[in-house]
Design a protein around this nucleic acid. Sequence first.
DNA 1: CCTAGGATGGAAAGCGCTTCCCTACGGATC
DNA 2: GATCCGTAGGGAAGCGCTTTCCATCCTAGG
Lengths: 339, 339
Amino acid sequence: MVQRVTLSDVAREAGVSLATASRAINGSADRSVRPELVERVTEAAARLQYTPDATAQAMARGRTTTLGLLVHDIADPYFSAIAAAVVRTAEAEGLQVSLATTQNDPAREAQLIDLMRRQRARAVVIAGGRSAGERSDALAESLAALGRQGVGIAAIGQPVPGVASVAVDNRGGAAALAASLLDLGYRRFAVLGGPTDRVTARDRREGFLDALGDRGSVASSVETAFTWEGGHRALLRLAQDGVLADVDAVVATNDVMALGALAAARELGLGVPQDVALAGFGGISTLRDVVPTLTTVTVPMDELGVRAVRLALGDQGDVVESVGCDVVIGGSTPDLRGA
Amino acid sequence: MVQRVTLSDVAREAGVSLATASRAINGSADRSVRPELVERVTEAAARLQYTPDATAQAMARGRTTTLGLLVHDIADPYFSAIAAAVVRTAEAEGLQVSLATTQNDPAREAQLIDLMRRQRARAVVIAGGRSAGERSDALAESLAALGRQGVGIAAIGQPVPGVASVAVDNRGGAAALAASLLDLGYRRFAVLGGPTDRVTARDRREGFLDALGDRGSVASSVETAFTWEGGHRALLRLAQDGVLADVDAVVATNDVMALGALAAARELGLGVPQDVALAGFGGISTLRDVVPTLTTVTVPMDELGVRAVRLALGDQGDVVESVGCDVVIGGSTPDLRGA
DNA sequence: CCTAGGATGGAAAGCGCTTCCCTACGGATC
DNA sequence: GATCCGTAGGGAAGCGCTTTCCATCCTAGG
């Protein structure tokens, strides 16, 4: 039942040698084959419904056409947007994408890097924030081993030591957000800060704080999970603690947290923005259907994906590219200065 | 710089033969190796940081550990939810997921199936609705060729001839939605029907219509693109044509269309549900943050992914499993019978 | 003490392909 | 007409691994 047509079969059918068949089909990479023979081989291949065996080719050529993509969770709109760009770009380069999800587990991350090494991936793109310090040793080691094998690696989101990265200018974006909100008349803020050890969250938090300067102040900055539930819980807590009444706006360090906070506000009967103004960070596409439109800082996810693939394929060492973010003011933070 | 450690190196380092090294590392599949030697080999491998070459293994064993996944667009929440389940399940089975996106192009779909054949994928999962008839010949042929090679195939969403499928009971779900809406007092509907040739859309449309029976009626059923913009445009048109005033509720055949319609209604200054009630279909997770909560029919995307992988791996021919949908009544279709 | 048979290691044959290297051939050069 | 060279096809050597088959050793039964 399982019939495999090999190149030898094609060669025999076409009455040529294996070598010639290979050259004819590959568009004669190293040498030329008479057009007539090329045609004969092509026809034989078509007749037999021959398909080259990619694993055998990889073996013989010593390199695969696989690009590994690591994300925390492909169902997360942030990662799926990046993945879409990565897949599109990789396909344009003739590469297949091998997708793996780390489930936010650093140990798993290192493990998957090793897996990519086994697969002899041509390049690897790692998306998703990491925590500062501690367990990243295993990751670093795996990455080093991978790099030593000549595999191009690119990290998305934040620089990873020893690896080319396309970083998001979280600090800059957060600073711009702070400036915009100050301009709109906001002065006192509560910050849903995300996990303290998460670099992305930290940069956004600090970027925001630093940019406030003495023009504004933060009444409360709470540590939260980087999730919808995290934002939800945090806002409930803020309300309970009475902080909310004392604050002009709540700033979340990512969009899904902001959405969780929005839901929590609603549950409490608080209107957004009447009772509490709200801003997020990320610019995920699903924000489009949320009312009021959420003020946020858009991260160019498509660009991140595209550039990461380029970087991983480019092999120019541990460059760090940075992409900027744009502040988008929505209905969740109306202008407070006069009408 | 590019140093490759092969099994031969490990064997030499451990002072055993290649065969023994292989057996020691694979947990001696066919035969036993003295524990002492196993340890020696394991240690040598660790010392050299040896990683087996998956492509070579695939070649030698004659089968890969790759599962191909085809989706229209990985950024679409429907597909990314399915993909998450597929990846998770595949990983549990020790398989890597090779992701490709068809961009809704049937020709591309056939092409990608061929690509999976080249990759000698162990199994292939195809998600995403197809159109009825016409261009599916190329696809069918590619699928047949793939199947002949002993690759397990499963389709998600709707049955594909000759292939195991896990189908969504769109008709049943739509019927249940109709029943629920009738119960709530709705009688006259406008249906945003999606593309006429799309099987999924057709099933939902017809399921809804059939279930209405003579208890309700459809004032208008329009063909639309299966996208946010499609829903958006369609609602504007309905309003323009004056149909909207004559209708109790607008029913969209998928969620993103419903969201587009929701946005359009807002632009027109129409309140949902005060001026127009609205229902969708799909149950994508991003609905959580939409207000009013959208009445919809949830499709168990996680289950779809899990079962598709099982089916693709199981190899029991062209079974068709069906998964049911649940109606979820939200604030977008309040109870019309008395307060 | 001899031999049958189980246990275990090694040599080697592939898996399907690419590519190096050699050979054959035809035309150009002297 | 003999020598060269460029062109194009074929033979064969791997790529790194698994697995079959054979060789060897040891133990146990007669």
